[in-house]
Simulated scan of single mutants.
Amino acid sequence: MGNQSLARLYMENLDVRVTSMGYNQVWTDWRELDYTPDFNKFYLICDGEGWLKIGDSEFRPKPGQWFLMPHGVKQSYSYTSGPRYTKYWCHFTARIGDRNLFDLIQTPLYVDTKNDSEAIRLFRELLDSDAAASISGPLLVKSAMLRLVSYYIEHAVSSEVSLHRSTEPEPLEQVISYIQSSYRHNLTITDLAEKAHLHPNYFIRVFKRQFGISPIQYIKKRRLEEAKLLLVTTNLPLSEIGERIGISDISYLSRIFKESTGFSPTAYRMTFNSHQTVSP
């Protein structure tokens, strides 16, 4: 499985939660040394001077620079003798299963927004969402946080995504590759667990902890992705598509397809096939 596909799998199962946020000038006692947070932090520097240390790297961030201070990494920060920082900031978790997103995907510790108004707008959106009194306020916060994470990753990562070397243990890498090549066949948890050299129950827990999705859910997802592709790029009957993706029971395929997409296979083909049209 390529890095790009694996990274997309992580993003699909990403859960974000914001614990605090703000926009302010830091206090005169803004200083802490050698602590390790159990959350991630974003700092978008708007004005002023200061000092950060993230792991072994030291920085004197400039206005327009957006810093990531990851969960589980030793950090320090301090004001300096110049004007104190004014910054947008938030503390948040970003997890796939029980793994931190930034333990899985390699990103630099900061991006230069070049004073992009979009970056500021996204932070303002987060703060405004938190202030919303509506019942959907928590959803607005989560949505705004996902957009912040998306912006940072899109501007921090090249077109070829890099994953940390320890991201995908070799046995699980073999299992993912096996599912990719063999999802058309009858795959059982016992078979997959044997390939990972793990007990089936433990294998399920490890797989979900790593990818945020169970093995069976992943197999079904892969089959439905192929079904959607075949529906819009071929004229194959549903029975043959079912055979090609490893689901011979057409009633079952139709049911899970509609549960996943909101469309029956026929309606999906009519709606998304560029050579056909359908009334809304």
Rank of each mutant, 00 (worst) to 15 (best):
P237K: 02
L236N: 07
I245V: 14
F203H: 11
A196G: 04
E168V: 13
K195S: 05
G242T: 12
K258H: 06
H164C: 08
H185E: 11
E170W: 05
E173N: 15
I256Y: 05
E243F: 01
E194R: 15
I241S: 00
P169K: 00
P171N: 04
L198S: 14
Y218A: 03
R223H: 06
E240D: 13
L229A: 14
R184T: 13
I241C: 06
Q174V: 12
P200V: 13
F257Y: 02
H185D: 14
A227P: 03
R205F: 08
E170I: 07
P215A: 06
K195Q: 06
R205H: 11
G212S: 09
R184S: 14
I216A: 12
L253D: 03
P169R: 00
I241W: 03
I256Q: 09
G212P: 09
P200M: 07
S239H: 13
Y218V: 00
S177H: 02
L187Y: 01
Q180L: 14
H197Q: 11
I250W: 09
S239A: 15
L172N: 05
Q174D: 11
L229Y: 15
R255Y: 08
Q210L: 03
L253N: 02
E226V: 14
R209I: 07
A227E: 03
N235G: 15
V175I: 05
S181H: 09
L163E: 02
T190G: 10
L229N: 15
I213R: 10
L230F: 07
N201L: 13
E225L: 14
Q217W: 05
E240W: 06
V206E: 10
I250Q: 02
L238C: 05
L224V: 07
S182G: 07
S260H: 05
A196V: 08
I247F: 02
T233R: 00
I245D: 13
P171V: 01
Y252P: 00
T188A: 01
R255W: 01
A193T: 01
R209S: 10
R184N: 11
I179S: 01
P237R: 01
I247W: 04
Q180T: 13
S251P: 10
F207E: 00
P169I: 03
L231N: 01
Q180V: 14
S162A: 14
K228S: 11
E170S: 09
Y178V: 00
L172W: 07
Y202L: 14
L172K: 02
Y178I: 00
R244I: 13
R223D: 04
E168N: 05
F211T: 05
I179H: 03
L229W: 11
L253A: 04
S254A: 04
L238G: 08
I213W: 01
L224Y: 02
N235I: 07
V232Y: 09
S181M: 07
L198D: 07
S239F: 08
